[in-house]
Simulated scan of single mutants.
Amino acid sequence: MGLTFEKLLVIGVIAVFLLGPDRLPEYAAKFARLIKSLRNMADGAKDRMRDEMGPEFDEVDWKKLDPRQYDPRRIIRDALLDDPAAPAAAATAAATTTRLRSPDPLVIDPDAPLRFDSEAT
């Protein structure tokens, strides 16, 4: 959500004006109870998973499973490198791509043979 200190400060000032000084401590206490209950639920879920999974729970690298770490390019690259035939195919594709590219794509040499990709036709 991108909450920074400045944004939280603005939200706090708005809350003071909307709620007033009389009701603000009450709502702050309710918010603190809500945060504690959410933390207890998360800890309970973690304990339950540890009980059900057994010793494998501690061996799992949870940071690796974080969806914020998702990078499609890295996943595809890792999947291609797991295949033993992939490095040879990748090297062939890279060589073909380099042959098809000219050093300066805007300059056309009329005497040079036409370049085309036989797989693209």
Rank of each mutant, 00 (worst) to 15 (best):
A42M: 10
D104P: 00
F116I: 07
A94T: 04
L18Y: 12
V60R: 07
T121K: 04
I76K: 01
D61M: 12
D61K: 10
R101N: 12
G44Y: 09
E52W: 02
V13I: 13
D117E: 12
S118Q: 05
P25W: 03
F57V: 00
G2E: 04
T97D: 14
Y70S: 09
L34C: 06
E56C: 08
K63M: 11
I14H: 14
R23E: 13
Y27L: 13
D78N: 06
Q69K: 13
A93L: 04
T4V: 08
K7D: 10
L65R: 05
A88Y: 00
D78P: 00
A29C: 11
I11E: 05
D58N: 06
L8E: 01
I108Y: 05
I14M: 12
L9I: 02
P55K: 09
E26R: 09
A85H: 01
A95S: 09
D51Q: 06
G44A: 10
F31S: 14
T97L: 15
S102K: 13
D78M: 06
L80C: 03
L8Q: 02
T121V: 09
D66N: 15
L3W: 08
K30I: 14
E6R: 12
G2H: 06
V16P: 03
K46D: 04
T98Y: 01
L18N: 11
D83S: 05
D117Y: 02
